[in-house]
Computed example of a mutant assay.
Amino acid sequence: MRRTRLWIFAVAAAVIVGGGALIGLGMRDDSGGTGGGFLPSSLSFGDDGRAPSAAPSPTGPSPEELAKAKRAAQAKKLDAALKKLAATAPEFSVAILDKKTGERYSYRGAERYDTASIVKAQVLACLLLKSQDAGREPTSGEMNLARPMIRLSDNNATTSLFQHLGGRGAITKCNQRLGLTQTTVNTAWGLTKTTVNDQVKLLSELVDTKGPLDADSRKTAFTLMNSVDDAQDWGVPSIAQAGEAATVKNGWDTRSADGGLWAINTIGRVVSSDKETDVSVAVLSHNNQSMESGIALVEKVAKLTRQHLEY
């Protein structure tokens, strides 16, 4: 009888020890920490008692994640290419806005430059806004100034419109409506200071269906900037491919303060009829030895952005 009791006690002890081991196992989660007393899901059995199937393998990055990684790699290569060029070239900045993808890129985007004649695109936008505010189209007299201002870069026409609109104060208020936060208007309009980031913002406002310019104003801006004189058809248009249209406003000037060196700027858009390409581009530069070398520089910079960003 004594032996029987000892045997029962031994069996009971084994059950208690074994149960404790199972409880101890159940309180360890997949990371090795303590849980709530249940087996990890990877070790649990189904209602039918069968062993669990293996967890599905990861599906890999999403298409969006792959696209983001590709764009980051492209931007990194473009950074390297522009830095290499900058080591031997006059100072420049560039910004890109791809309307199709919403992606932006800028190199030295907040550096400030004299606008020279690219400010005329701002003056045009302000003229169109003023007309809208008055509930009318631009008058024939206003358009007789706007056309040569954009197509021929006529300085006298620009001065007349600049004063007609209210001068520095009025253009500054207009720029605020357009979201230009890094542009400082000068009474001598060609010495207005701006950045490529602001110029790309301006270009986007000229086409934004939800922006301040209505459809007629956007059409007018496109028509004028798409039909500049052949002698001024350089800069951004140099990167347009077959079947694409380009808009542009260029600026060029020399200043005695810069030792007679040239400021060469180009802003505009490249767009295809199927909207597969819809990109705003701004390249600003100064301290160029000549107008010709400055044009070559801004076109090279623009071409590098297209090559590396693949738009």
Score class of each variant (00 low, 15 high):
His164Pro: 03
Arg3Glu: 06
Ser31Gly: 09
Gly18Thr: 10
Thr115Arg: 08
Ala80Leu: 09
Ser293Leu: 03
Gly60Leu: 12
Thr139Lys: 08
Gln199Ile: 03
Leu66Cys: 07
Ser227Glu: 08
Thr209Glu: 08
Glu103Val: 11
Gly135Phe: 07
Ile150Cys: 04
Glu65Thr: 14
Tyr105Cys: 06
Lys249Glu: 09
Ser57Glu: 06
Val271Gly: 08
Leu82Trp: 01
Thr34Trp: 14
Leu39Gln: 08
Ala73Asp: 15
Lys120Thr: 01
Ala81His: 04
Arg71Ser: 04
Val283Lys: 01
Thr88Ile: 09
Lys201Tyr: 08
Val200Phe: 05
Ser44His: 11
Ala55Asp: 07
Ala12Ile: 04
Pro40Thr: 03
Asp278Arg: 05
Gly102Arg: 13
Lys100Ser: 09
Lys77Glu: 10
Pro212Phe: 04
Ala12Trp: 04
Ala170Ile: 11
Gly135Pro: 15
Asn155Asp: 14
Ala245Phe: 15
Gln176Arg: 00
Leu82Val: 08
Pro52Thr: 03
Ser53Ile: 08
Pro138Asp: 03
Leu202Tyr: 10
Asn287Leu: 05
Glu137Asn: 13
Ser140Trp: 13
Leu97Gly: 07
Ala263Cys: 11
Arg71Ile: 11
Gly190Ser: 11
Gly60Arg: 13
Leu284Thr: 06
Phe38Cys: 02
Asp79His: 08
Val200Trp: 00
Gly259Arg: 02
Ala110Ile: 13
Leu203Trp: 05
